[in-house]
Write a protein that binds this DNA or RNA. Structure first.
Lengths: 362, 362
DNA sequence: TACTGTCGTTAACTCGCGTTACTAACGCGA
DNA sequence: TCGCGTTAGTAACGCGAGTTAACGACAGTA
């Protein structure tokens, strides 16, 4: 049984008017239509169960009331309690308020030509690129084409680039300032490398904190996982044992990631390293993964759901042609201090932010 | 700068042929078109950056290559590491393989008239209802309308209802059999009530295990959270302390839920109850929530991603008009035995499935 | 009576593409 | 030369809506 849909012309015939009249009534452009006719049309439409045809409406109006979403790795993001899941929650809320639906593009980011084609086909009014893409060819191509796009959690150098992100520089700064305040002088910094804007920004913030405390730059021991693609638990563990074997040894780790560092931390007791006594640890994102780690991780919290809602606000602003006050909206971050940096027996080892010139061993 | 899209007719004019010819070439229906013409059209189309218009194509063909998804509470599902997230991962994978995109309906389930209208508007070729809905009016309405629909994780009494679910009856059976085998005779069973198919089925399985072991039915102490809507931690804790204060006291809990029971279990040490020594606990779903509970929970695992892929398979089968072998596909479950039912010091208290007629105190 | 101006309504065009049915041109054999 | 078949290509219609421009009816005026 194929679905027999009621068309506007069916309503028109049943109501004894032309299709144009029905269109006017249903779309609210009922100027000049007498109340009686209007009510009759509405009644007949309801009785017959009329629904507009989505494709026809989109073709005629050029609008779909749909927003597209591209995730750079859909399944992995959804699988775990990742930051993207929280962003999506905000996106959902906001899209519902604006009465838009969400089209999730299933194509992989590596197949960006396919995505480009889909996005240009007009199946949506605008697109959220939720990512932190590397080797990104899609974003500039879309911007060149003039499609309404908002980048979430990253941005690129382009005059037309609109984006929403948290203040990554401040995040790096807060993380480092915290461990410096707690007396640490040799600090490992795990990050994706500088090809990603958030990696670059967090490193910059970290360096600012070091400089502010008068610590030499080389005390910040950088480890970029860029060369290996994704950070693995093994890679982190090896890097960490290398760092711990050196003199002076690092006493704190700041990691721009959450899942792997959690695994590493939970494996540390096996090799006789205690957190935070032997090693202080700070992660990013501060989702349940950090909160439920043993011990719970101090973490830089991002307002993930707000990022989602702000991105939708911005995208719909672009779609509806409003002038937007800013191209890049940066939301503030917060440091959630937990056990991984606070030894139970010590409350305050070091006075607040006393600048330290010489390095000190942990 | 509005997006100026290249239309088929633009390509036709540039290539010096009619739009029909272009249509034939691009859609592969190039019978009778000489190779030279064909190649010229393809070359011009590529050079001009032609992309089909999604709405026009959908209007002309009646197909969208899009599947709709309705979640009964989108944001809460996405927020946490819930079973729906895992199902969605499977849905994504499968949709990508079929080259379909996913339209997530943002409207709330309570506003089911809006959802009904959207689904009938033809914005998608078919719809996945991912749920466990109660007071469900949407599903029967859609089935009556003849829209291709697949129910995920639930089903209703209707000749046209297609669904994918796990074998809930077997899940209830496995959970109960396990605790009975471990010697428990007074068992609490937390479930949503019998208005939901999965609650009904799991209870049925639980009763089967009781009967098989020769245990009287009243030894299964039922607690339905239906009357309070969603199970809360407080409600469970109260119910549990009531059960533990009774004589004979329950010694095991089987809970058709994961998040709340985890919270309850982790709060038990505060009231001096040890798991599993004082109380054995079995949850459902067996996601990371159960695995990372302290202690890790024995749990009935469902093949969540497979449910997602199977649902897409079934829906696309319906969309493409294939005859499907079965209306309700039931995927097997598995019991993941963890510490919450296995005391460290005891390996096997009771021989396997020895039928016990009389009730025994824990 | 004719002319003007509303009011209510609709014919006709548009959106971009699939598809059917038809034509013009060409080649070949009788 | 006529007739036929084949090849190469297109005109025209439809999908279901929005939208513009114009029409007929009727009332009011000159």
């Amino acid at each position: 049984m194929p679905v027999r849909r009621v068309r506007m012309i069916d309503v028109a015939e049943a109501a004894g008017v032309s299709r144009t009249t029905v269109s006017f009534v249903l779309s609210g452009r009922d100027a000049g239509i007498p109340l009686e006719t209007k009510q009759r049309v509405l009644r007949v439409a309801r009785q017959m169960g009329y629904r507009h045809n989505d494709a026809a409406l989109a073709l005629a109006t050029g609008r779909t009331r749909r927003l597209g979403i591209v995730l750079n790795d859909p399944t992995s993001f959804i699988r775990s309690d990742s930051y993207v899941a929280h962003i999506l929650a905000g996106v959902f809320d906001s899209a519902l308020r604006y009465n838009y639906n969400l089209l999730m593009h299933t194509a992989r980011y590596t197949d960006w030509h396919a995505l480009y084609g889909e996005i240009l086909s007009g199946a949506t009014d605008g697109t959220l690129l939720v990512g932190r893409f590397e080797h990104d060819e899609l974003t500039p191509a879309l911007l060149e084409a003039g499609v309404p796009v908002v980048c979430v959690s990253y941005q690129i150098e382009h005059p037309g680039c609109y984006s929403v992100d948290c203040d990554n520089e401040q995040g790096g700064y807060l993380a480092l300032r915290h461990v410096i305040e707690r007396g640490h002088r040799q600090i490992a910094f795990f990050y994706p490398g500088e090809t990603l804007s958030w990696g670059r920004d967090r490193l910059q913030g970290a360096r600012r904190a070091m400089a502010e405390a008068g610590l030499p730059e080389q005390n910040l021991r950088l480890f970029a996982w860029r060369e290996i693609g994704q950070p693995t638990q093994e890679w982190m563990q090896e890097a960490l044992s290398f760092l711990l074997s050196q003199k002076p040894s690092v006493t704190a780790v700041v990691c721009c990631e959450e899942g792997r560092i959690r695994q590493v931390v939970e494996a540390l007791p096996d090799v006789g390293i205690r957190v935070p006594d032997d090693l202080a640890v700070v992660s990013f994102n501060s989702t349940e993964q950090s909160a439920r780690c043993r011990p719970p991780l101090t973490s830089v919290a991002q307002p993930l759901e707000e990022i989602g809602t702000a991105a939708v606000d911005m995208l719909i602003g672009r779609v509806e042609g409003r002038d937007l006050p800013e191209h890049c909206r940066r939301l503030p971050v917060r440091l959630d201090v937990r056990d991984s940096t606070i030894p139970a027996r010590s409350l305050a080892l070091v006075p607040d932010r006393s600048p330290v010139v010489e390095q000190a061993s942990g």
